[in-house]
Structures are given as structure tokens and as C-alpha cells.
């Protein structure tokens, strides 16, 4: 792996749109060429070199490791659409980090703003601090959000994480979110996401979930009326076959959605026993 080091020279006055900071864009370019890549500052086009010191030359996408130092909380879209390689951010990072990425790895040693890993389609995004709203969410109006890959957030995340997430067992796609604690509407409109929360959540968790598994190891502020309690379990099987042990209360839902896969049998009143549409909360 070759290291390409970026250091922020001055804090941008307006949000800096730096979607060029990806291994894909840096591949095969020298430091001088990388410095000439275009970034957007307000309504002006600037070059990456005006804001960053750059050292190191790019090689193959998968061999590139980009290390960025500085407070990047006003730098947006780092790692957007990347397909391979690695990015390490030492500091806070702005909106849309790793959005639509489909491969490789991003590690943020700090906090991330909204839309971190939005519509992620593969690869791994790890954030050691907190993240804002819409982690791994679908952009406005999209019916498919995150479709593959893993997002890990050590701290707390905001509202509406993983909205419209779509996973598929036959397709071998298991979009997964692991986080410390979460706001409201976690996994709203989920179509097969896997979400594991170490701590507590706010309200409306799993709202409109058609398929998917949400595991909350802490408390939920208010469970939606449309979730039906099934009973206590000692072990949970996730969609990808992995197992989690512990004492949980199992709910099925969201039963307000027509296409919910965990159907209630009209004759017997039993809830069909599939791993779809489940919410587990620590007992």
C-alpha cells in the first residue's frame, strides 16, 4: 500500500465539496496532479492544492491509502463513490462522508456530520466518534437506500439512519449498521437491513419496516403500537446467519405496512415464523 498524505492548510470559509478525495480519483496521479483536482468552495471552483498539502503519488486504486489530517468538519463528500482502497481521516469530517461508496474502507477518527455513508453499496465505513442524521440513509425520493456493506459508529447517531435500506438473503447482500446509540426513526422503511444498537434509542424504531432485524441492547423510548410482542428469546439469528446471545424481548412488525413479511395468519392469529420484520429489545 502507498500512503498519500493530505493536510488541511486553512479552514474553508464555506463548505468545501471535495468528492475528489477518493482512491479512484488519485489512482495513477502524481502529487502535483492530485493538487490540481477540482474542489468547490461556495460558487467557485478551486483546486485541492489551495486547501491541502499533498504528499505521495497514487498507484492502483486498491493500493492507495489516503491519510487526511486537520479539522475537516466543513469538508463534504470525502470518499464519495469510492470503489476501493482506504481513507483515514484524523479529525472531524463534514457531510456525506463515504456516501454511495461501493468498496474499500474509510476510518474517521472523530465525528461525522449528516449523511455519513448514505446509500452505501459495499465496503466499510467506521466512525470512532458520533455521527449526524441520516447515517446510511436513502437520499430524498430514493426507494433503495443502503444495499450492502457495513457502517460502524462508536458513539451516537442522529435520526432516520438506514432509511429504505434493502438487503437480500438470496442476493447475499446484508447491509449492516452497528452503533452506540440512536435517535428516532432508525431503519424507517427498512427492506431487509440489519441494525445493532449497543445502547438506547429514541422513538419510532423500525417504523414502516417491511423486512429486517433491529437489535437494541438498551432501551427504546417508545415502541410503536403496530409492533406485536412475541416473547422472550435467548439467542437471535441475524439475516447473514450470525448469532447474538442475550436476553431479549422479540417483537414483530411493522404491522401497519401491507407488505410486511411477518404476516399474521387470519385464521389462527399466529405470526408467521420468519426472521423478517423483527425488533429485539433487551429484556
Amino acid at each position: 500500500m502507498v500512503d498519500i498524505k493530505l493536510k488541511l492548510k486553512k479552514a474553508p470559509e464555506f463548505p468545501l465539496e471535495a468528492d475528489v478525495i477518493t482512491p479512484d480519483q488519485f489512482a495513477g496521479k502524481s502529487a502535483a496532479q492530485i493538487k490540481k483536482l477540482i474542489v468547490y468552495h461556495g460558487n467557485e471552483e478551486k483546486t485541492l492544492g489551495e486547501f491541502f498539502d499533498v504528499t505521495g503519488n497514487g498507484s492502483e486504486v486498491n493500493d492507495i491509502k489516503i491519510i487526511i489530517d486537520g479539522d475537516l468538519s466543513n469538508v463534504k463528500r470525502i470518499g464519495e463513490k469510492m470503489t476501493g482502497g482506504e481513507i483515514i481521516v484524523n479529525g472531524n469530517v463534514g457531510m456525506h462522508v463515504g456516501s454511495k461508496m461501493s468498496g474499500g474502507k474509510i476510518l474517521v477518527n472523530g465525528n461525522a456530520d449528516d449523511w455519513a455513508g448514505a446509500m452505501l453499496n459495499g465496503g466499510e465505513l467506521e466512525i470512532t466518534g458520533n455521527a449526524g442524521n441520516y447515517v446510511g440513509a436513502a437520499y430524498r425520493g430514493y426507494w433503495k437506500g443502503m444495499q450492502n456493506g457495513v457502517i460502524k459508529v462508536k458513539g451516537k447517531i442522529g435520526n432516520e439512519a438506514l432509511s429504505w435500506v434493502t438487503g437480500s438473503k438470496p442476493g447475499n447482500r446484508f447491509p449492516t449498521l452497528l452503533c452506540g446509540s440512536a435517535g428516532s426513526f432508525l431503519g424507517v422503511h427498512s427492506h431487509g437491513g440489519t441494525i445493532i444498537v449497543e445502547g438506547d434509542c429514541d422513538r419510532c424504531i423500525g417504523a414502516d419496516q417491511v423486512r429486517g432485524t433491529i437489535v437494541v441492547k438498551g432501551k427504546i423510548n417508545r415502541i410503536l403500537p403496530s409492533f406485536k410482542k412475541i416473547g422472550e428469546v435467548k439467542e437471535i439469528e441475524l439475516m447473514n446467519g450470525e448469532k447474538i446471545k442475550g436476553n431479549f424481548i422479540e417483537y414483530s412488525g411493522d404491522h401497519s405496512v401491507e407488505k410486511n413479511h411477518s404476516k399474521i395468519d387470519k385464521k389462527t392469529g399466529n405470526i408467521s415464523n420468519s426472521s423478517n420484520g423483527r425488533l429485539y429489545v433487551a429484556a
Binding site: R203, C204, A207, R222, L224, P225, S226, K228, K229, D254, H255, S256, V257, E258, I264, K266
Partner: peptide
């Protein structure tokens, strides 16, 4: 409001509500 709409939707689908 969200919880109330949610409950109405569930009820429309024949779900017995708790509480």
C-alpha cells in the same frame, strides 16, 4: 401524531392493539 396514525393503520390491517 405519528404513533396515532401508526395505530390506525395497524388497526385497519386487523391488528389488535395493546394498552
Amino acid at each position: 401524531d405519528y404513533e396515532l396514525i401508526n395505530a390506525i393503520r395497524a388497526m385497519l390491517r386487523g391488528v389488535e392493539l395493546e394498552g
